[in-house]
Structure formats: structure tokens, C-alpha cells
Nucleic acid binder design. Structure first.
Lengths: 215, 215
DNA sequence: TTATAAAGTTAGATTAATCTAACAAATTTA
DNA sequence: TAAATTTGTTAGATTAATCTAACTTTATAA
């Protein structure tokens, strides 16, 4: 598989997580390319039985395609954790590097990372790490955006891995495991007044709330 | 720079180490591609001022090109040492992985590796590691092929990084620092009878002797 | 339910990196 | 030094991944 094909599979997998069907348009937006490029690539991927594709219809990953995507995701997430826990980088800087290292072809390399980390189940953003067969560990967590006022939660994951967003969380002292108490939910813009780690009061926009996973 | 351009620069640098002038033919052989491909790529590299090139003449790296090549070599060699000393891989398996990781674009990543290793001067094969400015540390060592019978040397480097060759050295118990005593040099094929680590007697072909650096 | 807009496809061009076939220059050898 | 060999170049084709322009299909709205 080429690097480009791997990136399409990753995008396809990410898009398959939501409710909406996967369309040519959404893939194009996700990858920042034009629709005709996507049309020709999905024909290629369909030829390799990695996706199910019929003109004008929604696109779906096949089992084979999903497996491939999850194996790349495994390499990405193991790398992120390795960069953070072994190499001491911050959670806001690991994504871009892992984006490159995930394409390295070497079972030996990634198995050794897996071993050194003790076969971890979650990456530095709280995302589950698929096992060597592409199976995801069970995990429950829900976005803060659906939570009620007056309750207290624990941060277990973030859905936006962008350095800017994570650096913002750093300035608030928020890390995985931090407590988040919802003080009030504002109906007009669905923003929330929150108390972080029992000391920092601030306001989270709805977008921010959607990107924070809690239990 | 593209991945392909980086690989040409590495090949160019390697070829520039020997006596012979760099020719289109030698580059083609080194990279396992055809001559016309090389012709078009050297015109490209010359356009970027990375090499000096005139039709039918020998090719030379410019200072800019050499610097670039050495920075890639730095990433390659730092990675090899990291894979061996931090991740516990064998010196026979690090080359192929480093060949891929050397193209990662991240100063942060490689500077962290450099730090973790304590700014090392040599890689697992005894090759010198260029500094962040592309400067090579001074080092003296010569191939065993030029050595005399009756003298004792210390292995400080290997010039062939192929897994097969290094595994062969492993079976002989040879590592960097091992002693090699030259018992006899045979004129007919320039092979040598040697005593390794004061205990193992064997015969080295001329090719093997050329690939072992000693002091 | 037809008109308009949005999404998708086709056709054809472009760029990087490769190739083969044919030709030209340089080098070696007789 | 002329012929033969090796090396190098040019021309033109190929593949993967991208693009724009033009056209078609599907979905939305009047």
C-alpha cells in the first residue's frame, strides 16, 4: 500500500465513526483535496477490495479495509504514547510526528514499542489502541457536551489532537484524569461553566465540550 | 526536498567518499535504477544547486548539497544508535528501519534522540555522526585489508551494514571493540588468517577485510 | 413537480519518478 | 587512429496522485 492509500484508509475510518454516510465530498474535505481526486482514488481502493463503492452511493470500508485502517491507527497511537512516555514529548506535539512514523514498515519496530510500553490500551489522548489483529479494546466514555449541570466527571480523552487545542488545555492544567465539574449549562450557545480540578473556573464553548471525553 | 531527492543525496555522498569520480552509471548502480532516470534527476538536483553537473562530466556535491546529505546521515545514524541502545534492537536490524525514519521531518524528534543518547559521536557500526550543522567529528581508522601479518588491531567500525554480513560477525562473536590479530596474509586472494578476541581462528576474504575498520 | 443547487463523475492536463528505445559522446582496444 | 565498447543523453511512454473545466446525477427548494 502506498502512503497516500494509507492516509485515505485512515480518513475513511475516521469518517466511519460518525453517523453520517461517507461521501466523496466528506473525504475531499477531510483530506483537503478536490472531489475528482477522491473519485479516482476510491475506484482504486474499491479495486483492491478495501472499500465498497458504487457510483453516487455512500462509501463503506470492507472488513479488510477496516482492518488495515486499524493497524495503521495502532501504529499511530503506539507511537504517540512512545513519544510521550519514553521520549518525554508533550501530548500537544506527538500527533504530527506520529503522523509520519505510522507509515514505517517494520513489525519489529512497533512490536518493540508495544513491549516497552507494556502493551498499553490507550494513547496520550485517551484513544484506544487496536491490538495486533486490529481489534479495539472495549471502552466507555462520552463527550462533555452531553453532560448535565451539577455533576462531576473525569476527563478520559480528547477528540481534537491539534497542538493549539491541547496547549490551551495545558494552560488550564487539564490532563487525562483531571476532574471537571459542570456548574451550569447555557441554553443559548450550549457553552458550560465548569470547575476544573476543584480549583480553576472557566467557560467551555460547545465545540470544546464536544472534544472532551469524560466518564 | 522529496524522499527520492534525499535518497539521491545520500547516494551521492556515499559515492563521494571513494576515489573514483561520481558518474551517472555509478549512481544508477548504487540506487538500482536506470541511467536515463539518473540523468533527469541530476539535472533537477543541479537546478536546486545541490550538485555541480555538466553533461558528460563527473558530478560533484556542492557545499549546500553535502550539508543536506550530512544532515540526513545524522538522522540515520542517530536513529540507528537509538534503535540499538534505547530500544534494544541488534546492530544487524537497525539499518533498514533507520533508512525509513531518517526521512521524518521533525527537529524536535531528532534533537530529543540526540539528547537521550548524550550527543553521541558514533553509530552502532562505528560510523561518525555529523553534528547539527553537518560537521563530522574527526576520526581515524583504516580497513583491515591494508593491515600486516603479525599485528593486533581493535575493531572500530564496519562499512557494510547489511543484515547478512552483521549476523555473520555476530556468529563469530565480533562486536565493536573486539580484537583482531592478523596471523597471515595470503597473496593469491588477499584473504587473511585471523584470531578474534584471542580465541576464535578463522579466515577473512579480502571483501570482508575491506569492510572492517580497525585501529 | 419542475427549477435550482449541491454533489459526483468524466475528460484531459500536470508533476515526479520511473522506464525503453534510439542516438551521441567518450573511452578503450586492436 | 579507426573500430568497438561503454557511458551518457534525448525522446517519448507509463504510473500515481493531483488538478481544472465541463458535464451528469441526486437532492433541495420554490
Amino acid at each position: 500500500m502506498t502512503l497516500t492509500e494509507e492516509n485515505y484508509l485512515k480518513a475513511l475510518h475516521r469518517l466511519s465513526q460518525g453517523e453520517e454516510p461517507i461521501t466523496v465530498k466528506r473525504i475531499a474535505v477531510q483530506l483537503g483535496i478536490k472531489m475528482p481526486t477522491v473519485t479516482s482514488m476510491v475506484r482504486n481502493l474499491a479495486g483492491k477490495k478495501l472499500i465498497k463503492y458504487e457510483k453516487y452511493k455512500a462509501i463503506e470500508l470492507t472488513d479488510k479495509g477496516r482492518r488495515q485502517a486499524l493497524l495503521i491507527l495502532r501504529k499511530h497511537r503506539l507511537t504517540e504514547l512512545f513519544l510521550k512516555d519514553v521520549m518525554g514529548l508533550g501530548w500537544e506535539e506527538v500527533h504530527d510526528i506520529a503522523e509520519q512514523i505510522e507509515h514505517i514498515q517494520s513489525d519489529r519496530f512497533f512490536n518493540r514499542i508495544d513491549e516497552m510500553l507494556g502493551h498499553p490500551k490507550f494513547d496520550p489522548h485517551g484513544e484506544p489502541i487496536p491490538d495486533a489483529n486490529g481489534k479495539l479494546p472495549f471502552f466507555k466514555a462520552f463527550p462533555l457536551s452531553g453532560c448535565e449541570a451539577g455533576k462531576k466527571y473525569k476527563l478520559t480523552g480528547v477528540l481534537d489532537h491539534d497542538a493549539g487545542f491541547l496547549t490551551y488545555l495545558n494552560t488550564l492544567g487539564l490532563t487525562l484524569g483531571s476532574s471537571i465539574e459542570v456548574m451550569e449549562v447555557h441554553g443559548f450557545d450550549r457553552s458550560m461553566d465548569v470547575l476544573l480540578n476543584e480549583k480553576v473556573r472557566t467557560v467551555f464553548s460547545f465545540i470544546v465540550c464536544q472534544h472532551l471525553l469524560v466518564v
